[in-house]
Simulated scan of single mutants.
Amino acid sequence: MPQTPSRTERSRTAILSAAFELYTEQPYGRLTIEGIAARAGVGKPTIYRRWNSKGAVVLEALMEHVPPTAFPDTGDLVRDLRTWLHGIAGLLADPDRGPLFAGLVGAAQLDPELAEAWRERLYRPIRAAGADRLRAARDGGGLPPVDTDVLLDLLTGPIWFRLLVAGETPTREYADAVLDAVLRTP
């Protein structure tokens, strides 16, 4: 017999669904904990028991409904990098999902709690996986001696720049061009 979710789990699910729905309907700046609580059918204290800010709950809701692109490890570094960059470009180019991530990046510039939640829950784990993969490739002779942080910045920075600064949609072809340019050896 299937186990019935606990009241805590039902509340969590309702809160994350409400936060995601509201975020797809309005900009981050107009969201409120009060609105999320009302949509979820819970009180504000229920939200604050689990999340310390609006940014933290919205980020978790987004990550649950639109999982970020993980860093693969198939043993073929170039293919893994290409797959990873295609995933990032595809996510950011998606007309429904891309603006949600871009909107949070923009909002994080003015919301220190959201910025910290973004770094802690999304950026650092993905970055660590990428750095581990690149270090292993470098140590195994698959990459020249390079600073893995710089290499990750060189690979992802242009994609985010294209979206957030240039206002252009990143494509798989653009991701390929970035990868080819970064990995090209003289």
Rank of each mutant, 00 (worst) to 15 (best):
Y48S: 07
P186F: 03
L100S: 06
V58M: 10
P2L: 13
R10P: 13
A108R: 01
L59M: 12
V178H: 01
Y123W: 12
L183S: 10
A18L: 07
R127A: 00
R127F: 07
E113V: 12
P112R: 13
G130I: 04
A131I: 15
S11C: 08
F161V: 00
F20R: 11
R97G: 02
R12W: 04
P170S: 11
E25H: 05
R119D: 10
D139H: 04
G157K: 08
D147S: 03
V182W: 05
L31Y: 02
R127I: 01
A102G: 09
G55E: 02
E9G: 06
R79G: 06
A128W: 08
L183R: 10
G90C: 09
V57D: 01
P125I: 14
G106L: 11
D132W: 00
L114M: 02
A128D: 11
A137Q: 09
L91H: 12
T69A: 02
E113F: 11
L155P: 07
S17G: 14
V42M: 02
D76R: 03
L155Y: 01
E34L: 12
G87M: 08
L22P: 03
R119G: 02
V78Q: 14
S17H: 11
Q109N: 00
A129E: 13
I126G: 07
T169W: 01
H86F: 09
P2C: 03
A89I: 11
H65T: 13
G141M: 08
R135P: 00
L59R: 09
R162T: 15
V57K: 04
D180M: 06
R39M: 11
T74V: 09
L152F: 07
A70F: 00
R133I: 07
L92N: 05
S6G: 04
V182G: 01
G41L: 07
A137D: 05
T83L: 15
D76G: 01
A19F: 07
D132V: 08
T24H: 05
P170M: 11
A166K: 13
G103Y: 06
I88Q: 13
A19H: 07
A14T: 09
T156N: 08
A14N: 14
G142W: 09
A40L: 03
P5W: 03
G98P: 13
P72S: 04
E173D: 15
E9A: 13
L110V: 15
Y123P: 08
E34I: 13
L85W: 04
L91Q: 15
A115I: 01
V105G: 00
R133Q: 06
Q26A: 15
P45C: 04
T13R: 08
G90D: 03
R121K: 13
A56G: 09
D80I: 10
W118I: 14
L134P: 08
P99I: 06
I47Y: 00
H86P: 11
A61D: 04
D132E: 13
F101W: 15
V146C: 02
E120I: 13
V66E: 02
A70T: 14
Y48T: 14
P68E: 13
P67G: 01
G75P: 11
G140Q: 10
L155N: 06
L134A: 02
K54I: 06
W51L: 14
G142P: 07
L31Q: 10
G167A: 05
S6F: 09
R49T: 14
L114C: 12
R79W: 04
G141L: 10
P145L: 03
G35N: 11
L31V: 14
E64R: 14
L179M: 00
R49H: 14
V178F: 07
T46I: 10
W160Q: 01
